[in-house]
């Protein structure tokens, strides 16, 4: 490995590790939090971590296709946020609560 200077030489691995850390934080939030809104925010965090991976690979492999994929992921994520928030609003209308333990049975 010629580039031994971890602090000064920013390579692909730095971005990948940062992305893995952000993804794991999002996963932690989805598992640990009980508020559905915060769980959706953590899902957005995971999507962003994946986007960072795509952009880093796009830069370091010199291809533009990773950015196309990020563009698509962003559109899908916006749609997903809209649908998820609509579902959360209807859950709140029914239970007056957004804690996940009130609708863990998924039936009426």
């Amino acid at each position: 490995m010629p580039s031994t200077d971890v602090i000064n030489q920013i390579g692909l691995s730095h971005y990948l590790v940062l992305s893995a850390a952000l993804f794991t934080m999002g996963f932690l939030g989805v598992l640990m939090r009980r508020n559905v809104l915060v769980m959706m925010m953590c899902i957005e965090l995971m999507l962003n971590a994946v986007n960072l991976t795509f952009i880093a690979f796009s830069k370091f492999s010199g291809r533009i296709d990773g950015q196309i994929m990020v563009f698509f992921v962003m559109t899908i994520a916006a749609a997903e946020a809209a649908v998820g928030l609509a579902i959360i609003v209807s859950i709140f209308k029914r239970y007056r609560e957004v804690n996940i333990r009130f609708f863990e049975h998924l039936k009426g």
């Binding site: 579902i87 859950i91 029914r94």
Partner: peptide, 13 residues
């Protein structure tokens, strides 16, 4: 779908 879901009474339930 979002508008339909948000307007429905009781939502998915």
């Amino acid at each position: 779908g979002t508008v339909a879901l948000a307007r429905s009474k009781g939502g998915t339930h």
